[in-house]
Design a protein around this nucleic acid. Sequence first.
DNA 1: CTGTTAGCGCGTTCAC
DNA 2: GTGAACGCGCTAACAG
Lengths: 331, 331
Amino acid sequence: MQKSVSIKEISEQAGVSIATVSRVINKNGRYSKETEERVLRVIAENNYQPNLVAKGLRVKHMKNVGILVPDIKNEFFTKLIYEIERNLFAAGYETFVCNTDEDEAIERHHVQMMQMQRVCGLVFISGTAHELTAQVPTVLIDRISTDPAFGGCMITSDNVEGGYLATRELLEQGARRILFMTSSKQVSCYEERYAGYCKALKEFGLPDTERRIATLDVLNYEGAKAKMKELLAAGSDVDGVFAGSDWLALGCYKALCEYGRRIPEDVRIAGYDDISITAFNAIPITTVHQQVDEMGRLVAERLIAAMKGEKPDGNPIRVPVYLVPRKSTRG
Amino acid sequence: MQKSVSIKEISEQAGVSIATVSRVINKNGRYSKETEERVLRVIAENNYQPNLVAKGLRVKHMKNVGILVPDIKNEFFTKLIYEIERNLFAAGYETFVCNTDEDEAIERHHVQMMQMQRVCGLVFISGTAHELTAQVPTVLIDRISTDPAFGGCMITSDNVEGGYLATRELLEQGARRILFMTSSKQVSCYEERYAGYCKALKEFGLPDTERRIATLDVLNYEGAKAKMKELLAAGSDVDGVFAGSDWLALGCYKALCEYGRRIPEDVRIAGYDDISITAFNAIPITTVHQQVDEMGRLVAERLIAAMKGEKPDGNPIRVPVYLVPRKSTRG
DNA sequence: CTGTTAGCGCGTTCAC
DNA sequence: GTGAACGCGCTAACAG
């Protein structure tokens, strides 16, 4: 398959043992300046590329990490991946990107493959809360482990605060019949945003009976649009929508437009994530900004620390969020 | 690192040799029905997971492919990756995603890493045209190899036609002083789109002197916006813009708006790719649709064929494009 | 400073 | 139908 020259041929050409070659490659010391130069020269001449697979077998792991993501087509996740990969690459790691399409079976399959590949770390982004028991250092983003044995690290944005900020904005601008649109599955970040929603309603003196929830099996633009249309067809009188993500907000926006509702006069809308499209939309969408750069940086930092043997302290790291008010809530 | 039980322990527990275990795992035949059942049972009991690294060392390659992409944050590339990964995963391959940030040095580094990892295939998406000599089956998307020795497969959308369609649309709607915005680097897909632009101008009887070109070092929204502002500040009188990609079109759009130009009355704009945001933009942007699904499917198909030993015929595969007319060109 | 050697876990001849 | 034995390319003792 590959004509790959091996460490053995290098050692022969350089007139040293393979052990010495290995040492200079890994800069493990215990060789003279001259031998180093000679070996390096032979390596360059032959365009020698160490076989990382053989090395991996020997040291029992590859310097690779797997990232499991529910939807790689979503800019929010993409920016996260970008930042994680950038930081890990700088530290010498390559990255598997595993798209799960929110499918538990696919996720399991990927996780198993990653383990058989002997990756040295795993990152889970959002997704459903089923048990996952990886035996490699793991970092969770916007995902809470219910497993008491989970020894990894958790990084999440301040979802409760975010849900609160978005809902309060809707309330302050006059909305009172506010719909919260979320996943039908148990996803921690959405549950936390819901808690923030409830907190804001309570603060404005609205009883629990005023909570309005729509759950989606298909957690994307299409699903949100279809659900919103369904509600409108059934005579929904909501005057505010807090969607669990920006794409859901856009789906609601489109459905409401098609039903002749004016945004924000008739219905005010707030989303979550602050992806680019919300700012470019015909009626720019109010949203909650997540600091993806900082989150991605933290993920790489914590993961690298964990792979070096450091034990995470078990407390989730919360990254602050802030509201980005736009026209969809403020005429 | 991992407590991984090995094929050896399985063989002991099942009372057979490791050779037999290997045979049933790989379904190589030459074992009885009973031994198969017994081995399979022991494997299940121990939750045995084959060590793909050891296997890889033995068979001299991993069942992984590397995808090199210039900008993973761009929805166009992301959709391509999604489709490629989905198809490859179905065939049992895992995928490395390598973001190059349009940086040649980073790309080289990734390619080298991929080869040291012994991936069995490589996919290059767009990017600059420097020489690349990978010794594994390779598929190029929207990127032409100048190396006569290149034995891989090339898949590209019909860029000349796309450039022609976009420019003709601008001309038909009345624009005459049309700017083509592109990369300052040599990127085949942009060069082809430029050829289409020239073809359309010629068809409308405009002399070569009427060609207007703006090249970008920073090939994204920010870069395009800055360049357009620069041109406007210098007194540009363009009444049409054909941008090499949608993000560039959006950058131009924003700059033109800030300078008080009305779209499409004063300046008509067309982009390329048909990413979601163009449809949601305040003034929806006319664009050229690329069939990413079909392209991704083809990439996986051709790559798998190549990895099985089939020789590509050397001719680039051209996927058709079509114009999506929107308000930015048609009041 | 340097070389020899023993595996890492697996697939694959080659005998039986 | 089954097993023993070798080696893929490399690292890490260990001996010198």
